[in-house]
Amino acid sequence: MQLLCPTDELSEGCSRGFTLAGQHLVAVRRNGRAHVYRNRCPHRGTRLEWEADRFLDSTGSLLQCAHHGALFLIESGECIQGPCLGHTLDALPCREDPQGLWVELEAL
């Protein structure tokens, strides 16, 4: 596992983009739990964000693709609306400890 960031750099209800070992990732914290996905929409393979660290819809409750508006559940990465309906974002195993948020890149 590789260190993605210190725990306090991913606040509740916030999303952040990262590049780690050449991989573009998105992390979001919801209900105290961090979720990490490959920053790649399953529809066209483009990055999700509107601008730096802007991955959430206007309600802050779903991940949203900036290019065609697809909406994804934060907890599972499942697309619930848009052209990739039923597909999922590539989830990465992650864990937290006192040092920070760790991610398993080999899962890509």
Rank of each mutant, 00 (worst) to 15 (best):
M1S: 10
M1K: 05
Q2D: 03
Q2Y: 01
Q2W: 07
L3T: 02
L4G: 10
C5H: 04
C5A: 14
T7R: 15
T7A: 15
D8W: 11
D8K: 09
E9G: 06
E9W: 11
L10C: 09
S11N: 12
S11L: 14
G13E: 06
C14G: 05
S15V: 11
R16P: 09
R16Y: 09
F18H: 08
T19C: 15
L20R: 12
A21K: 14
G22K: 07
G22A: 13
Q23S: 06
H24C: 13
L25F: 05
L25K: 11
A27V: 13
V28A: 03
V28Q: 08
R29A: 08
R30T: 15
N31Q: 08
N31C: 07
G32C: 11
G32R: 01
R33G: 01
A34E: 04
V36P: 00
V36Y: 03
Y37I: 04
R38Q: 13
R38K: 09
N39S: 11
N39L: 10
N39C: 06
N39Q: 11
N39H: 02
R40L: 14
C41T: 03
P42I: 03
P42T: 03
R44W: 02
G45A: 13
G45P: 09
R47S: 10
R47L: 09
R47F: 05
L48Y: 04
E49N: 15
E49C: 09
E49G: 07
W50E: 08
E51W: 08
A52E: 14
D53T: 15
D53K: 12
D53S: 10
D53F: 03
D53V: 14
D53C: 07
D53P: 03
L56G: 12
L56W: 10
D57G: 02
T59P: 06
T59Y: 08
T59A: 10
G60C: 05
G60H: 08
S61V: 13
L62I: 02
L62A: 10
L62E: 09
L63R: 08
L63H: 07
L63G: 03
C65N: 03
A66N: 06
A66T: 01
H68G: 04
A70C: 02
L71W: 06
L73M: 06
I74K: 00
I74D: 09
E75M: 07
E75C: 04
G77S: 00
G77H: 02
C79G: 10
G82T: 12
G82C: 01
P83M: 03
C84E: 04
L85W: 03
L85K: 13
T88R: 15
L89N: 03
A91Y: 06
L92G: 08
R95F: 04
E96S: 13
E96N: 10
D97Q: 10
D97Y: 02
P98W: 07
P98V: 07
P98T: 02
P98H: 10
Q99D: 12
Q99A: 12
Q99S: 12
Q99Y: 00
W102R: 01
W102Y: 12
W102N: 05
V103E: 02
V103C: 03
V103F: 07
E104T: 15
E104I: 14
E104F: 10
E106P: 00
E106N: 02
E106S: 13
L108S: 11
L108V: 15
